[in-house]
Each structure stands twice: as C-alpha cells, then as structure tokens.
Design a protein around this nucleic acid. Sequence first.
DNA 1: GCCAACGTTGGC
DNA 2: GCCAACGTTGGC
Length: 145
Amino acid sequence: MRYWLFKSEPDVWSWDMQVARGAAGEEWSGVRNYQARNMMRAMQVGDRGFFYHSNIGKEIVGIVEVIVPAHPDSTADDPKWECVDIRALMPLPRPVTLAECKTDPRLAGMALVTNSRLSVQPVSADEWAVICALGGLSPEAGFAA
DNA sequence: GCCAACGTTGGC
DNA sequence: GCCAACGTTGGC
C-alpha cells in the first residue's frame, strides 16, 4: 500500500466530476511527463491518493483509490504514455491548502512543496497521516483497512 | 498577467 | 553528450 497525489485543474477535471463517475472511476489520462508516468507505473490496485486542485483552490480536496493498474492512455497517440484508473473514495471534511502544507514543518519534504510542477507525486505514510488529520479525517477513515 | 522552475528539443 | 533555446506548468 502506497500513497500518492493527483493534481488536476478543477476547470478541466474537478473532484466533483470524479465523484460523479462513482465506483466505475475514470482514466487519469493526459499525463505527458515521464516522471509522472513512472509514478503511475509504480501504482498498485488499492493504493490511495489525494486529489489536489491546482490553480483554482490550490488545496487537497479528497481521497481516491487506484482501481486499474497502468495501461496505455486512450487519449495518447503513443502507447508509451500510460495511466491508471482511479475512483473517488471520500472528500476531506476540511480541504488542506497548499499554504498549510508549506507552513507545516512535517510536510516540508513533500513533493507538493518541493517540486510543485510534478502532476503525479508520491506521498509518504507520515505525510498521508498528517494531511488526513489536518483535513478532519480519523486515521481509520484515511488509511485503508 | 507575470515569471521562476523545470522538462524537452535540437544543433553542434 | 552538451547546452542553449524554447515550451509548459503553476504559484503568486
């Protein structure tokens, strides 16, 4: 079980749109960056991730689950671009903003803080727990059973 | 809208 | 294989 962060501009693909897909989930298509793609190749079904709104909001709004391992991106010309499918699990009762992440010393090493341009990022278990708590989720809710 | 950071491209 | 030029991302 590993933890990740998926970044999306909400006017292109928002948390609400992800929620509307329900249990069927959705392809995390459109990634054309090797680092981000390699993150998705490393994902396993059942891994969890934060859903982050870039540009508008700049906050972590929910938790998703990987439901299909990496496969060629249906929107890419070249099959070297792969992506996973994810489904929305639960919203954060209180979104956690980028500003909060930047000021919390426990999150100083987060990719969100140190490498803001990476669109799919790893999150450590410790960082996961901190953000779940900041977001108002109990540890039992935030962590997988 | 600006600009810094970063990734990619292409000439040599 | 290096590096300058260029394009894109995303915070401010």
